[in-house]
């Protein structure tokens, strides 16, 4: 029997895994599931990003896993301490949907696309190539990232399963 080790990543949370363990986060709506991977050491990391920028934070002690701008540097550091080499990192991401369509121009309602933009900005800043993405549109996603082969599996109610 093949024992698959699944590491659950909660909402506004980040985790790392290595050597074949699976990183999983469920029910991504406007949130973004961002993964980083170092192929040669098989070290992988996943963030469940809820908000684009910690500048809008009004909490006394911020949860750095929640915001794109604070979580990405933190994950890079965590993976480095596990022996991964940031120069080799590649990224994938899914989520950032617009769950409900409204005609209001409200920025809050556009939170999904803004999360995606913020994640891409951070990847650019750290020179991490984005290999593939399944973002936007209007449906929820559950994602699993395999730290053995770097495949991101995306499941949704309407669209079934796909791998990127």
């Amino acid at each position: 029997m093949i024992q698959e080790n699944v590491v659950k990543v909660g909402m506004a949370d980040l985790k790392i895994a290595a050597g074949g363990a699976i990183l999983k986060t469920t029910g991504l709506g406007s949130c973004v599931g961002l993964t980083l991977f170092d192929e040669s050491t098989k070290v992988a990391g996943m963030i469940h990003v809820m908000l684009p920028s910690s500048e809008i934070a009004r909490e006394a002690s911020i949860n750095i896993a929640k915001y794109a701008d604070t979580s990405v540097p933190h994950l890079i550091e965590l993976m480095r301490t596990e022996g991964a080499e940031p120069r080799r990192f590649v990224a994938k991401m899914a989520g950032g949907a617009q769950m409900f369509a409204f005609n209001t121009g409200s920025e809050t309602m556009r939170i999904g696309p803004r999360n995606v933009e913020a994640c891409k900005l951070m990847l650019q800043r750290f020179n991490i190539p984005l290999l593939s993405e399944d973002t936007g549109l209007n449906y929820g996603r559950t994602v699993e990232f395999n730290s053995m082969n770097g495949i991101l599996t995306i499941r949704s109610v309407q669209q079934g399963v796909k791998e990127i």
């Binding site: 909402m11 991504l28 709506g29 406007s30 949130c31 809820m50 949907a97």
Partner: peptide, 8 residues
């Protein structure tokens, strides 16, 4: 859709 995606 998934409850988590909707409620979040």
């Amino acid at each position: 859709d998934m409850a988590g995606a909707i409620l979040s």
